[in-house]
Structures are given as structure tokens and as C-alpha cells.
């Protein structure tokens, strides 16, 4: 079943009225020409399943929240935000769920670059810090686990070695923004 984004919440509400009261999962697929958000719902008593698809473009990748209809959507939506870079509108902003991925290059999109670089939002800081040799052990870089490193000054480039360090920076950043549990 295919829904337009603007009638998604209403449509799911109607389906819930017809007995589909159980949310199995929310996820998405990147088909290369756009994203599809998928809502798997179920009628437990009648043993029927339904899949609702919502097509969204890369440019305005967002869906409305369905938490009012299905409270179970909370964690699934947070996972989708992080892994697909699909914004979820209308819900209380929450801490990202899994890795506090910062929104650049969502990992489950097909555009994700495997061997390249982990790019963080505050990329400049990481590059500068690496230059000053405070982030990322040089020995790790020299171990040659990866292809030759790009120049540190290349835009949007961070080598694999300091990846963990970069991540740490991103995590800290995300926490600061959300003021989540870490700060309390």
C-alpha cells in the first residue's frame, strides 16, 4: 500500500481503526532514485499484515512522526533518522539511538562511501587536531590497513586511523546539542 507523505498519519490511523494495532517495524530502503520509508503493521487478532510505503526524495528527506498512532515507533524512528538521514518531523527531538552518527553520509544510504572517510560535522577541528597530532595515533596510520591517506587538507577528508577519534568528537557534539542523558 502506497501513501503520500501528507496523508501518512491519517492513513495509518484509519488502518489502526481497522484492526492493524501492532507496529512490527519501521525501516527504509534506498533505491538509488529516492528513498522509501516502510511501515510494517499487523492485525494480531485477524493475523493480517500490511506494508505501507512512502516515497521520499533525497532533497527533502523527511516523514511525519507516527508516534501518536503507534507509540512503538519511537526507537524505530530514531534509528531511521540516524541510519538513513531521514528527518522525522513533529516529534520531540531525541538523542540519536545507535552511534550518534552526525547526519553526514548516513550509513545505510547507497551513497555511503565505504573506504573513504568518516566525515564529521566539525570536520575542521578533527583535521586541525590531527595535524597537531593530538588525535589518532600515528602508528595506527602507518600500520597500512588502508589505502594511502589523502592529504589532511583535502576538504571533507579524514583518514581511517583517526576515525575512532573523529567519532568520539561527533558523539560529544551530539550530546551537547541534545543535552541528553549524559549531561544530566
Amino acid at each position: 500500500m502506497r501513501f503520500e507523505r501528507k496523508v501518512l498519519v491519517q492513513g495509518l490511523g484509519e488502518l489502526k481503526g481497522q484492526g492493524y494495532g501492532y507496529l512490527v517495524k519501521i525501516t527504509a530502503v534506498d533505491y538509488g532514485k529516492g528513498l522509501t520509508a516502510l511501515y510494517f503493521i499487523r492485525d494480531l487478532a485477524g493475523n493480517r499484515d500490511e506494508t505501507v510505503e512512502v516515497e521520499i526524495g533525497y532533497d527533502d528527506a523527511w516523514v511525519p512522526t507516527v508516534m501518536d498512532v503507534y507509540p512503538a515507533a519511537d526507537w524505530y524512528e530514531r534509528e531511521m533518522m540516524e541510519m538513513f538521514g531521514i528527518g522525522v518531523h513533529g516529534r520531540v527531538a531525541s538523542r540519536l539511538l545507535l552511534e550518534k552518527w552526525d547526519g553526514v553520509d548516513p550509513p545505510l544510504r547507497k551513497s555511503f562511501q565505504w573506504n573513504a572517510e568518516y566525515r564529521t560535522a566539525d570536520n575542521k577541528d578533527v583535521a586541525a587536531a590531527r595535524k597537531a597530532n593530538t588525535v589518532g595515533a600515528p602508528s595506527e596510520r602507518q600500520a597500512g590497513r588502508n589505502a594511502p591517506l589523502p592529504a589532511a587538507s583535502a576538504p571533507g577528508a579524514t583518514a581511517r586511523g583517526p576515525r575512532a577519534a573523529g567519532k568520539k568528537g561527533a558523539a560529544r557534539g551530539a550530546d551537547d546539542k541534545s543535552g541528553g542523558g549524559d549531561k544530566r
Binding site: T27, V29, D74, W75, L108
Partner: peptide, 28 residues
Amino acid sequence: GECMMYMVADPQRPYRLSIRDPSFINLA
């Protein structure tokens, strides 16, 4: 609990595999 494997198949390898895991939602 129930695990759902949703797979978009490709001739060689899965194009996308989504795993619905029971522990995930039970922890939530």
C-alpha cells in the same frame, strides 16, 4: 520473539536487508 527479515534481493547479494529484532523492541 519474532524476527522479521525483510530483504530486497539482487541477483548476487542482498540489495538491502532489514532485521526486525525482538530484543530491540523489548528493551524499548
